[in-house]
Write a protein that binds this DNA or RNA. Structure first.
Lengths: 225, 225
DNA sequence: TGACAGTTCAAACGATCGATTGATACAAGC
DNA sequence: GCTTGTATCAATCGATCGTTTGAACTGTCA
């Protein structure tokens, strides 16, 4: 009886893509429907017609972007069922970097995710459960295998966070790095170099920590005040 | 001859502190002068009277917050002139974490910095040159000493970025972590644990990488499409 | 052709924003 | 007492925001 909820897709699709750019550039609150519609060549009323309101447009953008990015760069990209943990770690790091930094993922996904992490909207809860938690669990599995059986689960999770932190740094600190180190090579080549470094650095750390229990540089310093 | 440019400081000081909270919560553009003035118990015209306009209030907030934070938690906190590189690394990591996460630095400094990195305003250029670059140079010096003389300077810088990335992760991903791992201990104790992990992890990585040249897990995988 | 659902449009609504204005209160200097 | 400079206030301006409205246009099926 009811008509299909999403019949026409021409204007709707343009809005979805343009809105991604604009939300990534300006943030949810500062982005204006007028700007989005103008860039999409649509009327101001188009957003309210196709998505109901501004917030539901934003949710649709996040959904659309993530299914695109995870389809293009899956976290086990290039590995097979019997790949070693080292290979799977590198694939995880590399695909993660690609999703965050590569142009054409769409290009604004990384920026949009960074925004959502710093300035959460109601969409973050769903994002954590549907996207981030599965990815993190997968990474914890890899690190666990690298650490050897019997390693303290808390330390495994800390190491996994160290890996994620290194990757996210190149997204979150992008504008700072652009000012700190103006000359950087082409993007695709740079991403491969970063993936190499993060993988080697993390492997050396995990192996080194597994060898000797957990020797700290004795925090005799600090703790004052 | 001219009167001192900042004679009274009662309202001005309250505005400075309240504005920090509000800018950290809402971001520069979404924060409103009305909200700031209301929380500070001042009239809407107070900001324009004391600071000229909204943007110069924002600059004053950043300036004020950083001089406070670096004074409270200097990057060589707890070390002396003849401390080892390991001790200086731990002091750097720990004070960095404290500046980003500790309540009462002021508490909103970390959030404000995270925002400025993701959504840069005109203030970021000055921030990079006056705050971030000196800190990064200092860290590079520590990592260089740990890596041993003759290490590729590019790799030293990459390792320094890996350290910074791990620390910033706990600030930038705070809202995600709160959803991923709801139960977390008291803040001050947690910061010490994080400082321990980041230091140990990074030391193991730097030492492990220095031992064997730079063996990657052979990126035979990936690279397709 | 005519009816109808889907889509687009110009125009307007009420709300809220940053900034300005002119009046006022207060204290110090002469 | 009078002037001067600092500080605060209520009131208001013009601009811009998200959203709504009702008419116009499109294609399809009877």
């Amino acid at each position: 009886m009811a008509a299909p909820p999403v019949p026409d897709t021409a204007t709707r699709q343009r809005l979805l893509e343009v809105a991604g750019e604009v939300f990534a550039e300006q943030g949810f609150r500062s982005a204006t429907i007028r700007d989005i519609c103008a860039r999409a060549g649509a009327n101001v009323a188009a957003v309210n017609y196709h998505f109901g309101d501004k917030e539901r447009l934003y949710l649709a953008v996040l959904e659309h972007a993530h299914s695109t990015a995870l389809g293009r760069y899956p976290p086990d990209l290039g590995t097979t069922g019997d790949s070693s943990a080292e290979e799977r770690l590198r694939a995880f790091v590399r695909s993660f970097l690609l999703r965050m930094l590569d142009e054409g993922v769409p290009a604004w996904l990384g920026k949009l995710m960074a925004r959502e992490m710093i300035e959460p909207t109601a969409a973050l809860d769903g994002l954590v459960e549907r996207v981030m938690r599965p990815l993190f669990v997968q990474l914890v599995g890899i690190v666990e295998e690298l650490s050897g059986a019997g390693t303290d689960p808390e330390r495994v999770r800390l190491c996994a966070k160290s890996v994620v932190g290194q990757v996210l740094f190149y997204r979150h600190a992008q504008e700072c790095l652009r000012r700190l180190e103006p000359a950087e090579p082409r993007d695709s080549e740079r991403i491969e170099r970063l993936a190499d470094h993060v993988t080697i650095f993390s492997l050396a750390a995990i192996r080194g920590m597994s060898k000797d229990g957990s020797k700290a540089p004795r925090s005799k310093a600090g703790r004052q005040r």
